[in-house]
């Protein structure tokens, strides 16, 4: 299991092999942090950045923001808001589902309908 920093570094370096705009300096500039800070994050010397910076970083890396946030030990603010609105209901739902396999959980996610065409 990769740490947040090492995962970001591996992904960024893989992309940088083909796209030189994925250097530490340029990625840091685009997400609005100092290159030295991003370098420290990648070496797990500094803690992960803020939610907004992680979301921006996920976009740069072509990664799912929720995945990177989870690796950083965070939950996106929109999910927190959903839970805060109905805390008991969602807490119970998550506890009930925690042991279910992925495909079982996906069956309760809203699916795109198919009709007559």
């Amino acid at each position: 299991m990769y740490s947040f920093g090492s995962y970001v570094r591996i992904r960024r370096e893989a992309l940088n092999a083909d796209d030189k705009s994925m250097s530490v300096r340029q990625v840091a500039q685009r997400i609005g942090v100092e290159p030295a800070f991003l370098s420290k994050v990648e070496r797990d010397v500094a803690p992960p950045p803020s939610e907004a910076k992680i979301v921006a970083l996920a976009k740069e890396l072509g990664e799912d923001p929720d995945l990177l946030l989870a690796m950083a030990g965070k939950v996106s603010s929109d999910l927190q808001e959903i839970i805060r609105k109905r805390p008991q209901l969602f807490a119970e739902l998550l506890r009930q589902l925690k042991g279910q396999p992925d495909h079982a959980i996906l069956y309760i996610v809203r699916q795109v309908s198919d009709g007559n065409w």
Binding site: H103, L106, Y107, R110, Q111, V112
Partner: peptide, 15 residues
């Protein structure tokens, strides 16, 4: 199953 995620159609084939 097909779901929507971040303005993307996601096709999964659990079978």
């Amino acid at each position: 199953m097909i779901t929507l995620h971040s303005d993307q159609l996601v096709f999964r084939f659990p079978d």
